[in-house]
């Protein structure tokens, strides 16, 4: 039986007849090179995705986040020791965030962050054997949109697949919600989403909407937003 893109695959399944450009096939998470030529072995259970011409990956509904360098994440401070904060970003290990890695922070003037506060930060380094490191400044030492998040909003955790979809600039969900009421949102690649709006009612609507969108296919969401 041949496996087609969109099929559910299990670890150990082998893919044959791959599309390639000049003998090159690009693979994403959940796939590994097989010993025989021109075939791949699946290492994660999920749906096989294919983007023409030659990109393959597996989409899974995993809940744990695997840190990746350069990702923007929403984290929660769990420990404060000296000049560094330990931040929970949903991965296997806590990430460290230096208090000096904020815009305008000096030895004497550091941001006032408490345990339990939320931050929007960028992963500076993520290595398998080391703890991930976060920063709240870009390469020009400016905050950009990074930094502590207001304690007025609410944080939910969704599946990473929804995050990928929401981050697509053409995705209509947030835009059509924005027509209903104004809100602020910070989407972390780790599945944590922080948002805030003027009233409790709007925030709850936003929360329900995101949870509902989690279980919906993109096609349905596009259709609903078009109406």
């Amino acid at each position: 039986m041949t496996i087609k893109p969109g099929d559910f695959v299990m670890p150990g399944d082998i893919l044959h007849d791959l599309d390639n450009i000049k003998g090159i096939t690009l693979i994403g998470p959940g796939l590994r090179q097989n010993t025989e030529p021109n075939s791949l072995i699946v290492s994660r259970a999920g749906f096989l995705c294919h983007k023409p011409a030659n990109i393959y990956w597996i989409e899974t509904a995993h809940k744990r986040y695997i840190p990746k360098k350069g990702d923007l994440v929403v984290g929660i401070v769990v420990k404060k020791s000296g000049d560094t904060l330990k931040v929970d970003i949903g991965g296997a290990e806590l990430a460290s965030l230096s208090l000096l890695a904020f815009e305008g922070a000096t030895k004497k003037q550091k941001p006032d962050l408490l345990v339990g506060d939320a931050v929007y930060a960028k992963l500076l380094s993520a290595h398998r054997e080391m703890e991930p490191e976060l920063v709240c400044i870009d390469k020009y030492y400016k905050a950009g949109n990074l930094g502590p998040l207001s304690s007025d909003g609410f944080i939910i955790t969704v599946l990473p697949s929804l995050v990928y979809r929401l981050l697509n600039i053409e995705h209509p969900l947030l835009r059509s919600l924005g027509k209903k009421f104004p809100f602020e949102i910070a989407i972390g690649m780790n599945g944590k989403i922080w948002f805030n709006s003027k009233s409790v009612k709007d925030t709850v609507t936003l929360m329900n909407c995101l949870f509902a969108a989690e279980q919906q296919s993109d096609k349905d969401i596009y259709e609903l937003c078009k109406q």
Binding site: G116, D152, F154, W194, T203
Partner: peptide, 15 residues
């Protein structure tokens, strides 16, 4: 290592 309990952020409490 043991997985930690998911922390509850201040903004969740407040909200």
């Amino acid at each position: 290592s043991k997985l930690k309990e998911l922390p509850v952020s201040n903004c969740e409490k407040k909200f």
